[in-house]
Design a protein around this nucleic acid. Structure first.
Lengths: 212, 212
DNA sequence: AAGATACTTGCAGATCCTGCAAAGTGCTGT
DNA sequence: ACAGCACTTTGCAGGATCTGCAAGTATCTT
């Protein structure tokens, strides 16, 4: 069995997974998640209700799977590129590059944000996924810097700060309806605020804030 | 109707709420949340199953309600004490003072952390609560500093960083089984790392890390 | 081609959650 | 005190979710 070789089985599996997720997302956009039943999603995706449960533990997870950014890939890259740069610098570059090169994904993210406001049931699950990523990231930061996740403050706090920079940037960018091009620099601003130690809380009277 | 006057009704309501939450926590500690049914919780708390649903939307929320720290109160104090100090400084003081004065609550927190590892269903709900607090905090930071939650990076990032400092400190303190007295200074270390701009990511080669 | 393996499906049972209406309990004004 | 009001508890019914299990179907390996 080659590592290259992807069987028909794998392909079909991915296809039904996508079909279910897409169906869930579509129906949710139409009627709101509360009005959508698993049976409906199943019908829309041309599978049995039982199969839906085989792929997702709940409606919510199905919807979220559809709105998935490729952030996992970014973390993957962070992992596989063992540069000597300090973690926050590397992450800043990776994320702002990603924002520059894949604006589609990020448009999708802001769509999901709106969907989440309309369907609060989604929140806990989305956030749980976010936290999982932070934990993965913490471990990698620790590995890179020779620190220890369970005993040092550093790795967890860096991971959390980086995620916060990304999420906050996205929220502001989406809320202000800024053009795609401005997102990368907004992300850089956020990271700068982190490494600058949150100027408003130090000597400088003027915060690094983006004016309205 | 005085603002002071608390009717018998209110008292009873709070009591049944506590009874249900306590019952949920107790049973979960005994058998694991998966093996606990709402009916059981109801029996343990001497109420009908329907009443359990009246108070909590799910078993998970009932369990979490039992392990509630008094962090809301701390935020309350942050709100009601309009000092001129920068937010991160004020929060650092408030939280480390709180850790010094109410170690019981924080012991409870680390118990809940263990419970959460054993019962992963709890995670999404706990985290969702955390995020809610971050959002409240963001709003207050914004109000204090004259910034805007929806257009400025500053308030959300500060709130998130502060929560991260608290959570990470608690995790490490709990994991290392440190004495109660050391928690406040650990929290201060975490806040120092924030305002110092995460030393490892700047010029200093030596991170502000706590050695094993 | 044939056996092993993995995916899909239907069904049954347990549980959860909600609306509704009836009964119980605390509250308020006279 | 007591009558009327408001809120809470409760049981019941119905719809929905989730899981294990067993049978059927498709894919993979040799």
């Amino acid at each position: 069995m080659d590592a290259e070789h992807v069987g028909l089985r794998e392909i079909k599996k991915q296809m039904t997974r996508d079909a279910i997720a897409t169906a869930a997302l579509k129906l949710t956009e139409q009627k709101g998640l509360n009005e959508v039943t698993v049976d409906e999603i199943a019908r829309e995706a041309f599978v049995s209700p039982r199969t839906v449960s085989n792929y997702f533990a709940s409606k919510e997870e199905a919807v979220l799977a559809a709105g998935d950014l490729g952030i996992e890939e970014v973390l993957e890259e962070f992992n596989s590129r063992p540069s000597e740069d300090p973690p926050l610098k590397a992450l800043c570059e990776l994320l702002s590059d990603y924002a520059r090169e894949h604006p589609e994904h990020l448009r999708g993210a802001s769509k999901m944000a709106r969907l989440e406001q309309l369907n609060p049931t989604l929140r806990p699950f989305r956030i749980a996924r976010e936290i999982e990523m932070v934990e993965v990231l913490s471990a990698r930061v620790a590995a890179r810097t020779g620190t220890n996740v369970t005993t040092d403050l550093y790795p967890s706090m860096v991971a959390s700060a980086a995620m916060s920079a990304l999420i906050t940037s996205l929220a502001i960018w989406s809320c202000k309806e800024l053009p795609d091009e401005s997102l990368p620099s907004l992300i850089q601003d956020a990271f700068n605020m982190i490494t600058a130690g949150y100027p408003l809380d130090r000597e400088s009277p003027d915060p690094a804030r983006t004016p309205v």
